[in-house]
Amino acid sequence: MASLIIRPGTRDDIAPLDALLARSYPRLLAADYPPSVLVTAIPRISKAQPALVTCGTYFVALRDGRLLGGGGWTRAAPGSGRRGAASVGHIRHFATDVEAVRQGVGRALMERVLATAAEAGVRRLECMSTRTAVPFYRSAGFEVLGEVDVPLDAGITFPALRMVRLLSSREGG
């Protein structure tokens, strides 16, 4: 098996990310969410955000030229567009292809995210996790703070869990 390449996202990654999200989210989330939630949420959460993908702190994972995952961090909280404290970062739009789950893709992306965030002075990373992804984030050192409803559109919310992880300067390398 060829090695995994992790690199910053580019505009050329947007369409493959859209396809990955549309293919993977319905299958991966089905065990943890009722169809009534998924039918309204999937069309809204399965689109790559061009500004996020190209921001420099969003990364993609490729093997043999095939995009297998994406994820990153920003200082701006999801949906706000506003930067918070310089020491706080937010995990953004992590996803692994349904055919590549448990093959180290998410772990490799998270290692890059943790390292780049720590190098940039981030000491606290927050995320809004799907119910499905909680075990992944826990394995990366995140702790659940509580349940939240993430607003997706007028009158449409998505049940998630707010999680946090403290970083040390040593993680930056």
Rank of each mutant, 00 (worst) to 15 (best):
A76H: 05
I91G: 03
R102C: 11
Q103G: 09
G81R: 02
D64S: 12
A61R: 01
L67P: 00
P35N: 10
A30F: 04
A85K: 14
L20T: 00
P50D: 07
V53C: 04
A61I: 08
T96K: 02
G70W: 01
D32Q: 06
A77Q: 12
G70T: 05
A51Q: 14
Q49R: 15
G106R: 00
S46D: 02
V39L: 15
V98S: 12
L29D: 04
D97S: 08
P43A: 04
V105C: 02
Y33M: 02
V88E: 09
S46F: 01
V39H: 14
R92V: 10
V101N: 03
L67R: 01
V105H: 00
Y25N: 04
L52T: 12
Q49T: 15
T54H: 06
L52Y: 13
D97E: 06
F59Y: 10
T74W: 13
P50V: 10
R92G: 04
I45K: 01
F94V: 05
G69D: 05
P35G: 08
Y33H: 03
A19R: 13
L62V: 11
R44W: 11
V39M: 14
P78F: 08
H93S: 15
V105G: 01
P50G: 06
R107V: 11
R102Y: 08
T40E: 15
D64V: 09
A77L: 10
G56Y: 02
L68Y: 02
R75Y: 12
H93R: 15
A86H: 15
S24P: 09
L62S: 07
S24N: 10
A22I: 12
S46A: 11
A48E: 01
C55G: 10
L20C: 07
T96A: 07
G69Y: 01
L20W: 05
G56S: 05
W73F: 09
G84L: 03
P35R: 09
A51G: 14
G84C: 04
R83Q: 15
P34W: 08
L67E: 00
G79W: 07
S80R: 09
E99C: 11
K47I: 12
A31C: 11
A41Q: 04
F59R: 03
A19S: 15
P50R: 06
R82T: 13
Y33L: 04
A85M: 13
K47F: 14
T40P: 13
F94N: 05
S87D: 14
L68A: 00
S24D: 04
A19G: 11
W73I: 06
L28Q: 07
I42H: 08
A76D: 03
A76T: 06
A51K: 14
R63P: 04
L68P: 00
V101M: 07
E99K: 13
D64A: 12
V98D: 11
A100W: 06
D32T: 05
L21W: 11
G56W: 03
A48G: 06
W73T: 07
R27E: 14
